[in-house]
Design a protein around this nucleic acid. Sequence first.
DNA 1: GGATATTCAATTGCAAGCGATTGAATTGTG
DNA 2: CACAATTCAATCGCTTGCAATTGAATATCC
Lengths: 155, 155
Amino acid sequence: MSKNALPPGIEAPRTLDGQLCFALYSANLAMGKLYRQLLADLELTYPQYLVMLVLWEGDGITVSELGERLFLDSATLTPLLKRLQTAGLVQRTRGTRDERQVIVTLTDEGRVLREKAGQVPVDVFCATGCEIDEVVGLKSQLEKLRAGLIDTNNA
Amino acid sequence: MSKNALPPGIEAPRTLDGQLCFALYSANLAMGKLYRQLLADLELTYPQYLVMLVLWEGDGITVSELGERLFLDSATLTPLLKRLQTAGLVQRTRGTRDERQVIVTLTDEGRVLREKAGQVPVDVFCATGCEIDEVVGLKSQLEKLRAGLIDTNNA
DNA sequence: GGATATTCAATTGCAAGCGATTGAATTGTG
DNA sequence: CACAATTCAATCGCTTGCAATTGAATATCC
């Protein structure tokens, strides 16, 4: 059962540019391209940067916990974390209490990288060409959308 | 030169959840998962569906034109179009006037699929859990963001 | 305790997405 | 006309992202 219906007289869009999904899809692609440039110096990809953001907030967490934060699963995270480990930014150790778990920890090098990454959010904000209020509002609208979509997916 | 700076006293966010990029990234992932479900019957992936949307608006266009609409390049589109061709939805023919170009045309089967896809946008709207006004506003905000980002990328 | 179910990370196979390059066709310029 | 520059699609190599499965460790239930 859907929460809401289209109001009478309103037609669902049939064109690419009429769709919310495409605005979301293409804005996300554009954001990814921006980050690729900004992260080139750090030798991080965009998803790798998101993982590092979580770890900079607090490391020593499991792959599952990382996945819950990022809405990703082990099929995506395991190879990504191996690459971060190869890059020397992260350590992966089996949990002692529960040997099924893998605990992800920052290396010193990984911690140091945080400083180098400090300018990235500022540069991103500048690149948006939006006012701060717009960015804040857009973020919360996207979070609401995400919540609605996830809610529907699990219904 | 950036269009705007952070207002004094406002700090750039350092957390994952403080970032616009992550809201965008994760909302886009959630949207992709929804579309995967909705498109399963049609045996289309999400990007393939976007390509079909363009072609349903008007086919007989080149790979480049498709790429301009979708903000994708041939490295992404060529393999995708080959899969659509294998699926019998699309024809690819070298241009006669300019043999560098490849013209993408719908097959009858591809045209028929349009009807089956008619319910998708309605279902997506329902799944958002948002009001129509919110969706419309969010779409235009995302388009503005996209424009700003692309503008910056090409600066 | 022992069988069963669940949880966790890893793996496989596939489809994007893109930087970089290639080769062919066309355009532009002298 | 000839030759350089440009355009176009295709290709290569790499990194996501995910459904489905696997195997090991743990939890649950009788």
